[in-house]
Amino acid sequence: MKTLNDLRCGVTAKVLDIKGEGALKRHILDMGVTRGTPVTVKKIAPLGDPIQISVRGYDLSLRRADAGLIAVQ
């Protein structure tokens, strides 16, 4: 299954599902990363982690491990 972590820079994909639970999952949802939302990977930090994505018209940074919880299409 493909996750947000597998996307290359500049690629846009739709969110399928969010794994995990509790605070982490809720925070991802609250920030607007919900099922069906298009997200674009914009940049990778100079040290290789975290990544910067664009969602709902703004920019969000999240770690690769957390990006791996977000299944995309």
């Binding site: 605070a23 982490l24 925070h27 920030m31 703004y58 999240l62 957390d66």
Partner: peptide, 11 residues
């Protein structure tokens, strides 16, 4: 360990 780092990069 479980602390998420999900941060807005504001304009």
């Amino acid at each position: 360990k479980d602390m998420p780092f999900i941060m807005e990069l504001p304009a």
